[in-house]
Amino acid sequence: MAQILPPLKPIPIKDRLSVLYVEKGHLDVLDGAFVVVDKTGVRTHIPVGGVACLMLEPGTRVSHAACALAGRVGTLLVWIGEAGVRLYSAGQPGGARADRLLYQAKLALDPDLRLMVVRSMYAMRFGEAPPQRRSVEQLRGIEGARVREMYKRIATKYGVEWKARNYDTKAWDAGDLPNRCLSAATSCLYGVTEAAVLAAGYAPAVGFIHTGKPLSFV
């Protein structure tokens, strides 16, 4: 029997909606497209392949057909916490494309290119060019010192008693209130950032300023 419809091909990332959040519904496939069915039975269609990343919040169920369709059209499925503050799992990053991963690896493995990226990230974070003739390790140390000073300055501005950045991941209650608040906010930011890195087709573990950890790039 002749095929009626042409085979599905991934839509270029630049032509897609970047991210769509799905909450409290059943993600399935109907008439060859994604459909979200809520508890009342109302169906909301999502253009097949028209979204780069579907963020699946708590209360969302996903059918096998939806996972298979996402793989074919290059839509990343990411299982997240409420409002994206946690990332639990992800499908195939980058829509099965390797070009961005290879580019990221090339930049990370070449010492000169890596330093160039680190300097660009420094300038983006602090709004000024980094000092000349500094290694990655030296820039990492300078960045850490500036961030610690930033904590002090912001604490003074808002009247918060600040001693130092000090926390123990295994003893949450041992930290003071400012450190616990900062740790909670950082954890939320990590979840959102990791989802963005995966949706863009890059690897969270391949970092530039930091290396050797699962979230070095985050």
Score class of each variant (00 low, 15 high):
residue 32 G to W: 08
residue 104 Q to A: 06
residue 83 A to C: 08
residue 26 H to S: 15
residue 59 G to M: 00
residue 168 D to S: 15
residue 140 R to S: 06
residue 16 R to N: 07
residue 8 L to Y: 01
residue 110 D to R: 10
residue 119 R to K: 15
residue 80 I to C: 15
residue 35 V to E: 02
residue 157 K to Y: 04
residue 189 L to A: 10
residue 71 G to C: 07
residue 87 L to S: 07
residue 76 L to S: 07
residue 154 I to T: 02
residue 19 V to A: 01
residue 31 D to F: 06
residue 204 P to T: 12
residue 13 I to Y: 11
residue 80 I to G: 05
residue 172 W to P: 04
residue 211 T to E: 10
residue 134 R to Q: 15
residue 147 V to M: 15
residue 193 T to C: 07
residue 69 L to H: 12
residue 200 A to N: 07
residue 97 R to F: 12
residue 144 G to F: 04
residue 120 S to N: 13
residue 176 D to Q: 00
residue 9 K to R: 11
residue 22 V to R: 04
residue 43 R to M: 11
residue 85 V to F: 12
residue 170 K to C: 05
residue 28 D to G: 08
residue 27 L to K: 08
residue 120 S to W: 08
residue 167 Y to K: 12
residue 14 K to I: 10
residue 81 G to Y: 01
residue 80 I to A: 15
residue 149 E to L: 08
residue 147 V to Y: 09
residue 10 P to S: 12
residue 213 K to R: 14
residue 16 R to P: 09
residue 6 P to R: 02
residue 175 G to F: 01
residue 39 K to C: 10
residue 32 G to L: 12
residue 182 L to Y: 04
residue 186 T to H: 01
residue 135 S to Y: 01
residue 46 I to W: 00
residue 207 G to E: 08
residue 129 A to V: 13
residue 42 V to C: 09
residue 130 P to Q: 04
residue 180 R to K: 14
residue 121 M to R: 00
residue 106 K to S: 15
residue 38 D to I: 11
residue 84 G to V: 11
residue 95 G to I: 07
residue 71 G to I: 03
residue 125 R to G: 02
residue 216 S to Q: 02
residue 207 G to P: 01
residue 118 V to R: 01
residue 169 T to M: 13
residue 145 A to C: 05
residue 118 V to M: 00
residue 216 S to E: 02
residue 27 L to T: 08
residue 108 A to D: 01
residue 55 M to N: 06
residue 203 A to V: 02
residue 35 V to S: 02
residue 7 P to G: 08
residue 11 I to D: 09
residue 150 M to D: 06
residue 22 V to S: 02
residue 94 G to M: 05
residue 19 V to I: 06
residue 149 E to M: 09
residue 181 C to V: 15
residue 75 T to S: 08
residue 194 E to T: 15
residue 93 P to Q: 03
residue 59 G to T: 03
residue 20 L to F: 00
residue 143 E to C: 10
residue 73 V to Y: 01
residue 138 Q to A: 14
